[in-house]
Design a protein around this nucleic acid. Sequence first.
DNA 1: ATAATCCAGAGTAAAAAGGTTGGAATTTAA
DNA 2: TTAAATTCCAACCTTTTTACTCTGGATTAT
Lengths: 153, 153
Amino acid sequence: MKLSTRGRYGLKAMVDLAVNYGGGTMAINALAAQQGISDAYLEQLIAALRKAELVISVRGAQGGYKLSRPPQDINVGDVLRALEGSTAMLDCVGDVRGDCSNMCACSARPLWLKLQNRIDEVLSATTLHDMAEDYKTQLRHLQASSAGTPAKS
Amino acid sequence: MKLSTRGRYGLKAMVDLAVNYGGGTMAINALAAQQGISDAYLEQLIAALRKAELVISVRGAQGGYKLSRPPQDINVGDVLRALEGSTAMLDCVGDVRGDCSNMCACSARPLWLKLQNRIDEVLSATTLHDMAEDYKTQLRHLQASSAGTPAKS
DNA sequence: ATAATCCAGAGTAAAAAGGTTGGAATTTAA
DNA sequence: TTAAATTCCAACCTTTTTACTCTGGATTAT
């Protein structure tokens, strides 16, 4: 019941791209530096997002990545599915249902279905636009609250 | 983003105990057989449940396990926490918050908090009593629908 | 050209998952 | 009293997954 680093790093990179949306491409090292991970690793994650057609890459010098469509048209479920393969907690409740021998006589399945529905509700209701906006105001508040105090060396 | 077999097997065993509630103890091999897993493995899972005081064990011949309290007083969150350690998808939103260096400037944290809340809502709102009742009617329907057809050899 | 960038695949160390093994302790029944 | 049934406990083992790193290109703006 844990989310892997793929999902965490990858989603945050997507939010960074969303914040930057409309302003050209971002290089992988800029994105990676912001999270303190290696370029090579983030590259792998971005590759998955590119294959899912959520980001577009521009090769060559001054190249980089950008979102393939407006942030409000990409939801978190899309992103996590691309990165993790699925948003399902169990195979028996996923999009591609793994078969379970006693699916129709499982005492837990109704619960798992309900849980998965709630999860997918949240994931599909939240877009990169939402997250980017939240993030921007969050940063503004941080700046405002540190404005009165002297800067640290 | 996967639930492990500990959670799956362990919870189903708890539902079995809930169905049996009030009718004495159940031996580990009876519980294990119902799910097609080894006694030894289920024993491990039950040990965690016993330490969390969700089940009571009776040692010796004719011994076994039973719920420590009525099924309506045990919710799924209690069970999963005992089996998996936590119901948190990420350390930074769990009961025992693992620290994350940039928690207050994380673009994803608001989402994770919301998601975790929805999950915990479902888990705490569902009791073993609910699951046992659902399961019993489910079995009744299965029986009813196969009543007209001849039994397989 | 060349420098910056993406692309693809293999390799690897550590952790987690998913068990198994063997035996000690306790209780009941013959 | 002894054998059988049962839980309890600790350690061990194997496989898979995670979380990366490394290497060696291929592509393209300048």
